[in-house]
Computed example of a mutant assay.
Amino acid sequence: MPTSHDVKGLMKFLAREEWRECFDEVFYDHFGPVLDASDMDFEDIAEILGDVWAMTLWGCAFEDFLTQDFEVEGGNIVDEYERSEKAMFAPGLGSAMSFSNGSLTGRHCA
């Protein structure tokens, strides 16, 4: 089973279409206005700031995304990933912990 700091599986989960669209929505909330106003792509930020800082900014949007509930099957990517991992490694176990922030409103995507 993955360690608590291993996010490789979660990153693979992000590649699923329903989660990708949700992440794109959060990503746009973080960077869309400045990118649109300056007619830039996120890759332009990496060229200006360097890859390390660009990935730090990307990580901020990713962390925000992980806390949000969406109106898609599963609702929250961390909760859904946790359920899938339990189903794979320990069938029959319920979710031990919810990672979503109940105070946030659900988003519409996919």
Rank of each mutant, 00 (worst) to 15 (best):
T3N: 13
T3H: 12
S4R: 09
S4D: 09
H5Y: 09
H5L: 08
D6N: 15
V7C: 08
V7N: 12
V7L: 11
M11K: 14
K12H: 13
K12E: 13
K12F: 12
F13G: 00
F13D: 04
F13P: 00
L14Y: 06
L14K: 09
E17I: 00
E17Q: 12
E17D: 12
E18M: 09
E18N: 14
W19V: 02
R20C: 01
E25Y: 11
E25V: 10
V26E: 05
V26C: 09
V26Y: 04
F27W: 06
Y28D: 09
D29I: 05
D29L: 10
H30M: 04
F31V: 03
F31D: 03
G32P: 07
P33G: 04
V34H: 14
V34D: 14
V34I: 15
L35E: 06
D36L: 08
D39S: 09
D39V: 03
M40V: 02
D41H: 15
D41F: 14
D41G: 12
E43M: 09
E43W: 09
D44R: 09
D44G: 08
I45G: 03
I45A: 04
I45L: 13
A46C: 13
I48K: 15
L49Q: 07
G50Y: 07
G50F: 07
D51A: 12
M55Q: 10
T56H: 15
T56D: 14
W58P: 00
W58E: 01
E63I: 04
L66F: 00
L66T: 00
D69V: 06
F70W: 04
V72P: 08
E73G: 04
E73M: 04
E73S: 09
G74Y: 10
N76Q: 05
I77F: 00
V78G: 01
E80P: 02
E80N: 10
E80V: 02
Y81V: 00
E85Q: 13
K86D: 03
K86V: 00
A87H: 11
F89G: 00
F89K: 05
F89R: 03
A90E: 10
P91L: 00
G92P: 02
G94Y: 07
S95P: 07
M97K: 14
M97C: 06
F99W: 10
S100F: 09
N101V: 08
N101T: 08
G106Q: 14
R107C: 02
R107M: 06
C109K: 04
C109D: 03
A110L: 03
